[in-house]
Design a protein around this nucleic acid. Structure first.
Lengths: 165, 165
DNA sequence: TATTGTTATACTCTATAACTATA
DNA sequence: TATAGTTATAGAGTATAACAATA
């Protein structure tokens, strides 16, 4: 009897393709909504949501913001620059480490987030949650949360010239 | 007692953010592997996989290829052009409809797909499936398949000047 | 008239490498 | 010497609109 092969079988491959297609279609849908409702890209929304919803202080360091958004440092600088130019965040030197930069969401940023969220959740309801019961949503979160934690802790070993954190 | 609100609650929002982050991180990881192993973008891999793995004939019309890959027609033309230039697909006028174009994967395309897949599944094992049991993978596929079907049938109502299909 | 696909074009985004400044 | 962030630059990808050809 052969060992259980380590390579994904049909079920795993199916889960993978379904995951990627759903996420891709969903991202496309919410990106349109965000663009129309607030002239935001999805990445910009992610950054604002992280500052405005996840962070108690509304502030985070550039390096910490990069985690989970998976960007090159220059890409984050670019996006933060756009948000700052739009008045949605500010950038100041970090208090404890003079090399660091602290990004803080502004009132305008919070206002835009609040303005955009209702339509955003509408899209989520229509596109993602309509075929899912509340229990399904819970099950989905329970399945994906450990994966997210695993991925965060096991970043793709790239030949990157520099490492984050 | 209030009705169950239609807007996503904390559980739904958590599922949504987990889904998007996992898919984003995973895409980033597989994109690197595809680029190194076969000089393919993820979209190009999706197109080749659809032709080489899903389609029995190895052929599909441009319009059908656009479904599920969520592109503008011009974007699909661009990607198909790249694949054709690389000798991975051919484009011919469709037999039944002279307006249509049939895209067919070549032997070289199948060979590249075969060359790239082992490393691809390695990344999947390491990044996505390590924290998931086989039953978890099955559950994930079962949860997401109906969502995918729903999304395919309910495309984002865009103000697009033209509609697909 | 509607649909299929291509082209031209402009724009957004991302990554690499070089650079500055601080730890 | 290593880390935080910026800048310059180049390349890939995407969308819009105008277009040609066929149904």
């Amino acid at each position: 009897m052969p060992d259980t092969p380590p390579s994904p079988d049909a079920v795993q491959l199916g889960a993978y393709f379904a995951l990627m297609e759903v996420a891709g279609l969903l991202r496309h849908a919410v990106e349109q909504q965000l663009r129309e409702a607030g002239d935001l890209s999805y990445v910009q929304f992610q950054l604002l949501a992280r500052l405005g919803l996840d962070s108690p202080s509304g502030s985070e360091r550039m390096t910490d913001l990069a985690d989970g958004v998976v960007y090159s440092r220059s890409g984050l600088t670019y996006q933060a620059g756009l948000l700052e130019k739009a008045g949605l965040v500010t950038r100041t030197r970090s208090a404890d480490d003079d090399r660091g930069v602290t990004v803080t969401i502004t009132d305008a940023g919070r206002a835009l987030l609040a303005k955009v969220l209702p339509g955003h959740t509408e899209v989520l309801d229509r596109q993602l949650f309509q075929p899912l019961s509340h229990e399904d949503a819970q099950a989905l979160a329970d399945l994906l949360s450990p994966v997210r934690d695993h991925m965060r802790s096991a970043p793709p070993r790239s030949a990157a010239p520099r490492r984050r954190r």
